[in-house]
């Protein structure tokens, strides 16, 4: 059960002449819900992209042992002019979810994320909470093995936040079916403590040793 899902080896992140995070080494174990504390917004966003494999680190190595990574960044990245259903359908097809499984998985992820009543609504008209849920649903439809969240609850009202956490914790509890790990990036220590594992990258120019 303690296999590694994602590993950072002496990774430095930033723009070519402006590194923001230096020499990070950490390991994300399978079956974990890891909270990573990082108060600086730019650094967090870059860490998110590097962890997702969208951006190359300046130095060091990022080893990913998963096939697909689901993304739930604070900044909505799906298509505002497509409806909830069309967005999820698009992601499912883009990740070549087999046609036989598609319809059922789309239904399941929409339901799991409380989006049933917004199914035909355009994503651009959704509230922040619903947008985050939509991104989460897109991660579920592709059966991502790792889900990366960046400040996903920042603008949520406390009731929405609870609901969102309930889904995340639910998915965490169901880990093993396809999900192997969740990483929750935030500047909010309170929410970091809700995770089963915590990593503090707040002292950003120091080497951070892996937590367990």
């Amino acid at each position: 059960m303690n296999k590694t899902v994602l590993e950072f080896k002496k990774v430095t992140i930033g723009l070519p002449n402006r590194p923001v995070l230096r020499d990070i080494s950490l390991e994300i174990k399978a079956g974990s819900l890891t909270g990573i504390y990082l108060p600086d917004g730019d650094a967090r966003w870059m860490f998110f992209q590097v962890a997702a494999g969208l951006m190359q680190p300046l130095s060091g190595e990022v080893l990913s042992f998963v096939q697909t990574i689901g993304l739930v960044p604070e900044r909505f990245f799906l298509y505002p002019d497509l409806t909830v259903e069309e967005n999820i359908q698009f992601v499912a097809e883009l990740y070549t979810v087999p046609e036989a499984l598609r319809a059922e998985r789309i239904d399941r992820s929409i339901e799991a994320c409380y989006l049933s009543e917004y199914r035909k609504q355009r994503a651009g008209r959704l509230s922040f909470t619903e947008k985050m849920f939509l991104q989460l649903a897109a991660s579920l439809v592709t059966e991502s093995e790792l889900i990366l969240l960046d400040e996903a609850t920042r603008e949520m009202a406390s009731r929405d936040k609870e609901q969102f956490w309930k889904v995340i914790e639910g998915e965490h509890a169901a880990e093993g079916t396809f999900l192997k790990g969740i990483i929750f990036l935030s500047h909010n220590k309170e929410e970091i403590y809700r995770c089963t594992t915590q990593i503090d990258l707040g002292k950003r120019f120091k080497e951070v040793s892996p937590c367990s």
């Binding site: 993304l71 990245f77 799906l78 992601v91 883009l94 897109a138």
Partner: peptide
């Protein structure tokens, strides 16, 4: 501009 490239890049299309 809108950041929607992310899903295209991430999916590896």
């Amino acid at each position: 501009d809108k950041g929607t490239n992310m899903i295209l890049v991430a999916s590896g299309i």
